[in-house]
């Protein structure tokens, strides 16, 4: 395996983000205009660049150690990527009235084997991010299971014939190529987001093989985020990491990135039994609640993490992305994350 570059020097108990930042109100309004065809290409570029700059600025101001671009160019986490895939046909949502849920989401059907000929577009996102900040940055890419989640397959459909794993495997070369292109563009830290690994009841051994195929030959620090879903702040999976272990330890990643704050820190004690052989980023800010954690709340959570995870392997992060919440909630929670982590560093004598 290619040697991995050194991580930029970071304080112990460093802070980072999951990826997506809250969208400002004007950005939602502008997205409606784009959808209605009222914006030209220049208008669009301006608005996406501005939104990205503001997301970066919010993170810098909050004092985070590692930033992302806020995923401001992505919509509903993965929806944007379907526009870059070939072999898909759009399906009407199953339900169009009432409260938005997993059956309200736009879906697709494969008309032939799915491919991503021009990449997922994260390389351009990363290049732009790199020009906008001097802080350490992280690129984020969804994993193959998550990329396939809104694509339907049915017995006898003549393409995947209800074999979701086969569809996921078709995403693997695209993800691997994307990661390599990110490294070529200068990324030295990439996080694979695979909430669906815990949502789609699956063959965990197969998911591990798939993950390792995705990161094969990718010379960067690799994070692996598994959560339980966050559609408009609501989870979908059974909220337990237990069943992923020990198989998930075979994933060739340098860091696990897990959610804890919204789960009352349940299962944090698991790390003692499992053994910590790599970094663990712990979600210590609840992205699904409007309650504003005090620095003490965050520090308490981190201290609990520290009783199970060695300090040189522990870092602080929100539970998940901020896409479903208002921007001010995201910005404020990031400040609390940083203030709470500072307090924890003091308490722990760092």
């Amino acid at each position: 395996m290619t040697p991995r570059p050194r991580t930029p020097s970071l304080p112990r108990l460093y802070t980072h983000v999951m990826g997506s930042h809250g969208f400002p109100g004007w950005f939602w309004t502008a997205l409606d205009k784009v959808k209605a065809g009222e914006y030209g290409a220049t208008d669009e570029r301006e608005m996406f660049d501005d939104a990205t700059q503001l997301a970066i600025r919010d993170q810098e101001r909050a004092g985070l150690d590692v930033l992302c671009d806020g995923e401001m160019r992505r919509f509903f986490f993965v929806q944007t990527f379907y526009g870059r895939m070939e072999g898909l046909e759009h399906l009407e949502p199953l339900r169009k009235t009432g409260l938005y849920a997993y059956d309200s989401v736009p879906r697709y059907r494969a008309t032939r084997r799915v491919s991503v000929p021009k990449g997922l577009g994260t390389v351009d996102e990363f290049r732009y991010l790199r020009t906008q900040t001097d802080r350490p940055v992280k690129a984020t890419v969804p994993g193959p299971v998550t990329l396939s989640i809104h694509i339907q397959t049915r017995p006898g459909d003549g393409v995947y014939n209800n074999d979701r794993l086969a569809m996921c495997w078709d995403m693997v070369p695209a993800v691997n190529a994307e990661l390599k292109a990110l490294v070529d563009a200068g990324a030295d830290w990439i996080q694979i987001d695979e909430p669906s690994a815990a949502i789609v009841p699956g063959q965990i051994d197969e998911y591990v093989k798939m993950f390792n195929a995705c990161v094969d030959g990718v010379a960067a620090k690799i994070g692996y985020h598994v959560c339980f879903g966050n559609l408009l702040s609501r989870p979908r999976g059974k909220r337990s990491y237990r069943w992923l272990f020990p198989a998930i330890l075979d994933c060739k990643c340098d860091q696990f990135v897990f959610e804890y704050a919204n789960r009352e820190m349940a299962e944090i004690e698991m790390w003692k039994d499992v053994g910590v052989d790599r970094e663990v980023a712990c979600g210590v800010v609840d992205v699904k609640s409007f309650y504003m954690e005090s620095p003490e709340d965050v520090a308490d959570r981190l201290e609990l993490c520290a009783t199970h995870i060695p300090l040189d392997k522990l870092s602080a992060i929100p539970d998940c992305g901020f896409f479903p919440v208002p921007r001010w909630v995201a910005a404020e929670k990031l400040k609390r994350l940083v203030a709470g982590t500072k307090l924890a560093r003091t308490r722990l004598g760092l």
Partner: peptide
């Protein structure tokens, strides 16, 4: 602790 659109609001 609050439940509007599935979001809580208070320290749980």
């Amino acid at each position: 602790f609050g439940n509007r659109f599935g979001r809580s609001r208070f320290l749980r």
